[in-house]
Design a protein around this nucleic acid. Structure first.
Length: 105
DNA sequence: ATTATGACCCGAT
DNA sequence: AATCGGGCCATAA
């Protein structure tokens, strides 16, 4: 059992559709605290439920690839995102095309 | 209960 | 693009 905030982050992260990405700040905002982006990252780092927790679909603000400790870190993360059809723009994710819109499905 | 840390974010250099 | 510094938050120790 995790803390309420963390659980909330899990709920949200879990419903990120394949091929889309969300930013830490976005998740934080959806969780109720737009400034808790850092806390969101911590929740991800402690991720207890890998299968349900697509932490690779969570990127930094502006689509910057931040975080991820598995495999080759960012490299692996990017690989997975590409595999899911996420549009990349050089070193960043093309949020313009691949950012998750919770409201829109 | 207090202190320290981190998968952040923003603005400036 | 990369680096530096300051601010915010919840979690872990």
């Amino acid at each position: 059992m995790q803390t309420p905030f963390t659980l909330k982050i899990y709920e949200i992260a879990r419903r990120i559709p394949k091929g889309k990405v969300a930013t830490y700040g976005q998740l934080a905002a959806l969780a109720g605290n737009a400034r808790a982006a850092r806390a969101v990252g911590m929740a991800m780092r402690h991720n207890p439920d890998v299968p349900k927790m697509p932490c690779h679909r969570v990127v930094g603000a502006g689509g910057a690839l931040i975080g991820y400790s598995a495999g080759m870190g960012i490299h692996t993360k990017r690989k997975m995102l590409e595999a899911e059809g996420v549009a990349f723009n050089g070193i960043r994710v093309n949020l313009l095309k691949s950012q998750w819109h919770p409201n829109r499905a």
